[in-house]
Design a protein around this nucleic acid. Structure first.
Lengths: 195, 195
DNA sequence: TTTATTTTTGAATGAACGTTCAAAATGTTA
DNA sequence: TAACATTTTGAACGTTCATTCAAAAATAAA
């Protein structure tokens, strides 16, 4: 029997790139076929439909997001330092000339009136991301405070993701972040939970 | 000679509703024709193209936004109170079950890789909105601080607009806002500029 | 080699897309 | 009423859309 000529993971990554840039309705199958090098039959056999491919691309993107966050936090000297550097990374990423925000956010906004099945997916993924931040925060703050801070964090991240399209960035980004989320400021916070 | 049967302003408002909900690529001419009650010929004679209609709808939406902001501030006991209530309004609006965020934000995200002519428009409108907030803030704070706070405000507004799609709102929204933008807190700020 | 199973191929499909335009209708002006 | 400028009408246009499927190719197992 014949063997697959393509790597599903690679194809998914290529699909993410296109969908992320151009959106669901803004992406044509032709673009996807060109980007992946697949023929219609192969693509449809593997992913069933444009929506099927999108759904898989989306959840793979979301998984990557959480992986990246956790890696950044574990690679930092403290949870708060990790979060700080994640926010700095977001500003940094926005400088790229092909910057295109967050795939999940774009999906949410584009499809909010359209496609329920994709949207429940997005909501779930955001909940996971928020819960992940919350879990990290709980190693530093009380559970109640952590819930609250995680909400703030998500809101600020959304803000950064969208605001970065416009205007130049603040002169001192670090200061800008800390003025909005002052609890990120000092690592003496590390002991607040116990103290 | 024949006379126009439709009111351009009404048609624009109807177009805004559809575009706002479904996005540019997600809206078909058929939907627009149905929503406006126009025939293709009339619509094209008046607006030239789908993009022409979108552009006009967009700038009318942006103008309305600034008008609303200024009305809210002028109707409040102070600039900061006005801004506070604008933010509360945003949260309130998000409770509507047909909530669909900000038309400008959705446009920015959907078309960032597509349509330059529409995007320069969006950037300009955002700059106007930020400048408008900045002007109001300058009646309270120093020019430098006002610029900084206006940036914060825009970022938070973007954040609220997107975050509102997800999850339930914070228990105490007022407190939530003030914890992120503490300078909105006390109206004693009113005198900071002079003091 | 043969058989069985899976995958690739790519032309074809019908539907939906944005747009056009000649003809009819409309109402003002002379 | 006649001449006119303007607007409406809606069928038709060519294109692009997502998707299908019968035939060919590929490889494993028998």
């Amino acid at each position: 029997m014949a063997i697959k000529k393509f790597d599903v993971d690679v194809v998914l990554e290529q699909a993410i790139n296109i969908f992320w840039q151009y959106g669901y309705h803004g992406t044509s199958m032709q673009q996807l076929l060109q980007a992946t090098g697949l023929r219609p039959g192969s693509l449809y056999r593997e992913f069933e439909s444009k929506e099927g491919l999108y759904l898989l691309a989306l959840s793979r993107y979301a998984a990557d997001t959480i992986t990246t966050v956790n890696a950044r936090i574990q690679g930092s000297s403290s949870v708060l330092d990790g979060i700080k550097s994640i926010l700095l990374d977001l500003f940094e990423a926005a400088k790229a000339k092909d910057y295109c925000g967050c795939f999940l956010v774009k999906t949410q906004l584009e499809l909010s009136a359209h496609n329920e099945s994709i949207l429940t997916n997005v909501s779930e993924e955001f909940a996971k991301i928020e819960a992940n931040y919350c879990a990290h925060l709980k190693t530093v703050f009380s559970p109640e405070i952590s819930v609250q801070y995680a909400k703030q964090l998500m809101l600020i991240i959304f803000g950064i993701r969208v605001y970065s399209y416009q205007s130049e960035q603040p002169a001192d980004i670090k200061e800008f972040i800390l003025s909005i989320l002052p609890w990120l400021k000092d690592d003496s916070n590390k002991n607040i939970k116990q103290g």
